[in-house]
């Protein structure tokens, strides 16, 4: 009996400590969040009433919700794809054994280790008209574009994407490099003997070997980008007008500016459901390919 249980659930004792921590900090708060989304909870009011699907009905007719939803999708998809492409290119460069590369590997991480709050303040400083780094740089290059970039209707959203790239690409680079370093040289040698050039051996040797790491990085960054609120909140506050309004910022404003916890929870629940669908689909694909 015991033997068969362990054979079927051999991983359980090993993963149990992690599960306990996550359960304490996750399951209870999440259940509470779901319940709140069916109420008119307000942080400042003591009485809370059950309102059924009222919040969700309101949600589907709320134009700001849909706008934020679309922005969130565009931001996540664009940022993650670009991060992956540039991350692979960076990892390939970092892998080369050329003089000075070790030093470069150490400094390239710098943008990723800065707390997001500091990144936001730094970039606000650097896009200031007149004395900001980017405007000085453009003036130096002879481009006349002196403007507060976060205040530009056309530039604010791309700039938010650039901010994500600036912060995350180095991490992709280092993580994918780690995966590439685990590929034995013999595999490349074998490919070369088969007559494969560098491009073909990238597709036949490198890419399949770092596939797992790519999946891991993409999964986590989809969740992270879709859920990230401080990068937008601290730089544009969702403006100008609504041009950078995204779901997590909307949740924050509902929860901590309007104090309408119930409504905020319903947005949070929708986000949860969306990400859950994405995650399930991803795991399916991953395991099918594996099996």
């Amino acid at each position: 009996m015991k033997g068969s249980f362990l054979r079927k659930n051999g991983a359980l004792p090993l993963i149990l400590p992690t599960l306990i921590i996550m359960a304490v900090f996750t399951v209870l708060p999440l259940i509470k969040g779901f319940i709140l989304s069916f109420t008119n909870a307000n942080l400042l009011n003591k009485s809370t009433a059950y309102v059924g699907l009222e919040n969700y009905k309101k949600l589907f007719t709320d134009p700001i919700f849909w706008l934020a939803f679309v922005h969130s999708l565009i931001l996540t998809v664009t940022a993650v794809i670009l991060e992956l492409v540039f991350g692979i290119i960076l990892a390939l460069a970092l892998k080369q054994k050329v003089p000075g590369i070790k030093l470069f590997r150490s400094v390239i991480m710098a943008s990723w280790v800065i707390p997001v709050a500091a990144t936001a303040v730094m970039f606000t400083f650097m896009v200031e008209p007149g004395y900001g780094y980017y405007n000085i740089l453009l003036k130096f290059l002879g481009v006349k574009a002196n403007t507060f970039w976060f205040g530009s209707l056309n530039l604010a959203f791309p700039l938010i994407i650039i901010l994500h790239l600036w912060r995350n690409v180095p991490f992709y680079g280092i993580a994918l490099l780690a995966a590439m370093q685990a590929i034995p040289d013999t595999q490349y040698e074998a490919a070369e003997i088969d007559g494969a050039g560098p491009i073909r051996s990238f597709f036949t040797v490198t890419l399949p070997s770092i596939r797992n790491m790519i999946i891991v990085m993409v999964t986590i960054h989809v969740l992270w980008t879709f859920n990230n609120f401080d990068m937008v909140y601290l730089t544009t506050g969702g403006g100008p007008v609504y041009s950078t309004q995204v779901l997590p910022v909307y949740v924050y404003q509902e929860a901590w500016t309007n104090y309408t916890t119930g409504y905020a929870s319903s947005i949070g629940t929708i986000m949860f459901v969306l990400l859950m669908f994405y995650f399930i689909a991803y795991i399916r694909v991953y395991q099918q390919q594996e099996g």
Partner: peptide, 11 residues
């Protein structure tokens, strides 16, 4: 294990 990452942390 992943579910916290799917819910807005501010909530």
């Amino acid at each position: 294990v992943f579910s916290t990452q799917m819910f807005p942390i501010v909530l």
